[in-house]
Computed example of a mutant assay.
Amino acid sequence: MIKKISFLLLLLIGFFVSAQTAQDTTAIRVGITGSAPFYIQNEKPEGIVPDLWREIAFSLNRQYQYTKFDSVKEGMQATANGDIDVLVGPITINSRRAETVSFSQPFFDTQLAILAPVLDLSFWDHIKPFFSSTFLYAVCLLLIILSIVGTLFYLLEGRKFPDEYGDHPIKGIGIGVWLAIVTMTTVGYGDFAPKTPRGRFVMGAWMVISLIMATSFVAGIATTLTVSSQQEKTIKNLGQLEGKKVATPSYDKVLNQVRNVGGSPVPVTNVNEAYQLLKDEQVDAVLYDEVPLEYVFKNEDKEEFILSKKNIQPQHYGFIFPLKSDLRRAVDLQILQLREDNTISDIITQWINSKE
């Protein structure tokens, strides 16, 4: 009896081991979607994601077969229906998608970047600050104050010395303004000087006031000129997209972000289309994921365009599994390992540099 029970136990153990082995050798049904450099559709799939999945499958000792999907939406539906075991690609992790599928650990953290042509400042751009309203208001206000001080000085002292200040009020006020300017700038030519106690009081008070005021005026004007002269025409941040045509992916979140800063979004289907619109001068800038932008941004164009990364709309890429997937945990562990040893970063860098 004992021998029969032992024999049955051995049969059961052998059955479970065989079933487990058969399960491990079953090819994983992998859906793939995305665009270059994450997924390049050739005779054999190439790109960042195929290279990454190859590393994961090798570590799991599992075979796999690809099924291509034109969009994440189609791949998600196939995953939810159980037609595939995992959907791989540059898939943004968000709460809305997580309602129907399960996400892996993020394999890459990304952001939007801005690609725009390099625009040099013209001669007018350099002198335009001198015609700004702030600069003109400051100069006009200073002239008014000088006129008031010159008039007051003429009334208190200039009329008493017509030989020096002239009989005509305009000439006398002009000399008073000149004296106020000389006093404010601490030049001190000595051609005119107050002689009466009231005149000296006015000029003494003006010395103190002008010392404080001149410092403030000079600092304000210098700041205005410096800030204005340093303003670049090259688009490097979201604030500079106002009134500009911007090629963007056709995602509502990105389109609305451009509209919120006063820009006009031009939806495109892929980054190559956006880059071509920029080169054809049909748009003023491109707002797209940084990795595809770096990939299409050719080395020979780096003197004509500039790529700016300003931490715009950070997002995370992950793989999609059915809600009750037994495969997800094993893939999560591999993703964490590949991130820790910088394998994923090396793969991405290699593909971006492959266009150089």
Rank of each mutant, 00 (worst) to 15 (best):
A214N: 07
A214H: 01
V218E: 04
A219W: 06
A219H: 01
G220P: 00
G220N: 07
G220R: 02
T223K: 09
T226Y: 14
Q231Y: 05
E232C: 00
E232W: 02
K233I: 06
T234W: 02
T234D: 09
I235P: 09
N237E: 14
L238A: 03
L238W: 01
L241C: 07
E242R: 14
K244W: 07
A247V: 05
P249V: 05
S250L: 01
Y251K: 01
K253Y: 13
K253E: 15
K253P: 01
K253M: 12
L255C: 04
L255W: 09
Q257V: 13
V258K: 11
V258I: 14
V258F: 09
R259D: 11
R259W: 06
V268F: 00
T269H: 06
V271H: 04
A274H: 02
A274D: 10
Y275M: 13
Q276W: 03
E281K: 15
E281I: 01
Q282C: 06
V286Y: 09
V286C: 11
V286N: 09
D289S: 11
E290M: 12
P292S: 02
L293E: 08
E294Y: 02
Y295R: 01
V296I: 04
V296C: 00
F297S: 02
F297V: 06
E300G: 10
D301L: 12
E303Q: 06
E304A: 10
I306W: 04
L307T: 01
S308K: 04
K309T: 04
K309C: 00
N311R: 07
Q313P: 01
Q315K: 15
Q315I: 12
Q315P: 03
Q315W: 13
Y317N: 13
Y317H: 13
F319D: 11
F319N: 14
I320C: 08
I320F: 10
